[in-house]
Computed example of a mutant assay.
Amino acid sequence: MTPPTPTLETANLARRTAARFRAEWLMLIHDRMVSPVDVLTEAARPEARALLKLSLRQLLIAQPGWGRTRADTIIDKILSVADAKIERRQVTIGWLLDPRAGGRRFAAWLDAFEPRSALGGGGFPYARRSPHVSVSAGVPDAAPNRGGHV
C-alpha cells in the first residue's frame, strides 16, 4: 500500500518551514551565537536535515566580515583538495557531509582553514600539487576571527 500523496498546501508548508529553519541558523551565525562548525554538526542530525540544502557560500557569508570573494576562495580550496569537478553553487552542506565521500570532503573543509605548509601547500600530502602554484600561495587570513569560528 502506498502512502497518501501530500497536498500542495502541505508541501508548501513544509518548504516554508525548512526555509525558515535554515534562515534562523544563518542568523545565529551572523549574530555569532553559533559557528559554521556548529551548523555542520546540527545538519548531521536527522531532525535538522533541512540544513543540508544550505550552500557553503551561504554558510560562510553569514559570518560577520565575510564576503563572496573570501567564501569562494575557501570553496575553491575545498574543491581543489577534494578533486571535485562541480560548480561552486552546487557545494552544499549535504555535499560536504555526504557519507559516500568517506570524510574526504569534510577533511578538505578542515584543510581550507589551515595555514599552508612549507612542504606542499593546500591538501598536502593528499592533493595533487599544481606546477603553477607557488608554495606560498594561499589565502591570507583564511581563518575567520583568527580561528574563532571554524
Rank of each mutant, 00 (worst) to 15 (best):
M1T: 09
M1L: 12
T2R: 12
P3Q: 12
P3G: 10
P4V: 08
T5F: 05
T5A: 04
P6I: 07
T7Y: 01
T7H: 03
E9V: 08
T10H: 03
A11G: 07
A14R: 10
A14T: 13
A14E: 13
R15W: 10
T17Y: 08
T17G: 07
T17E: 12
T17V: 12
A18C: 00
A18W: 00
F21W: 09
E24K: 13
E24A: 05
W25I: 09
W25R: 15
L26E: 04
M27R: 15
L28E: 04
L28F: 01
I29Q: 06
M33A: 12
P36K: 02
D38P: 05
L40E: 02
L40F: 03
T41W: 05
A43P: 00
A44H: 12
P46S: 03
E47S: 00
A48W: 00
L51D: 02
L51A: 02
K53T: 03
L54V: 06
L54Y: 08
L56Q: 06
L56R: 06
L56E: 06
R57Q: 05
Q58A: 14
Q58R: 09
Q58D: 15
L59G: 07
L59W: 04
L60E: 04
I61T: 15
I61F: 11
I61V: 15
I61R: 15
A62D: 10
A62T: 12
G67S: 09
G67P: 06
T69N: 04
R70H: 03
T73I: 07
T73F: 07
I74D: 10
I75K: 00
D76I: 01
D76E: 01
K77A: 05
K77L: 14
L79F: 03
L79T: 04
S80R: 15
S80D: 13
S80Y: 14
V81N: 07
V81C: 12
D83Q: 15
D83K: 14
D83E: 14
R89Y: 11
R89F: 12
Q90G: 09
I93M: 11
G94F: 09
L96F: 03
L97W: 02
P99M: 09
A101E: 03
G102N: 01
G102M: 02
G102K: 00
G102A: 01
R105Y: 02
R105Q: 00
F106R: 14
A107F: 10
A108V: 13
W109Q: 04
L110K: 03
D111V: 10
D111C: 13
D111A: 15
A112T: 02
F113L: 05
F113R: 04
P115A: 01
R116Q: 11
S117C: 06
S117R: 15
L119N: 10
L119M: 13
G123E: 07
F124T: 06
Y126S: 07
Y126G: 10
A127S: 07
R129I: 13
S130A: 14
P131S: 06
V133R: 14
V133N: 08
V135F: 11
S136L: 15
G138A: 12
G138M: 07
D141S: 13
A143E: 01
P144N: 03
G147Y: 00
G147I: 01
G148V: 08
V150N: 12
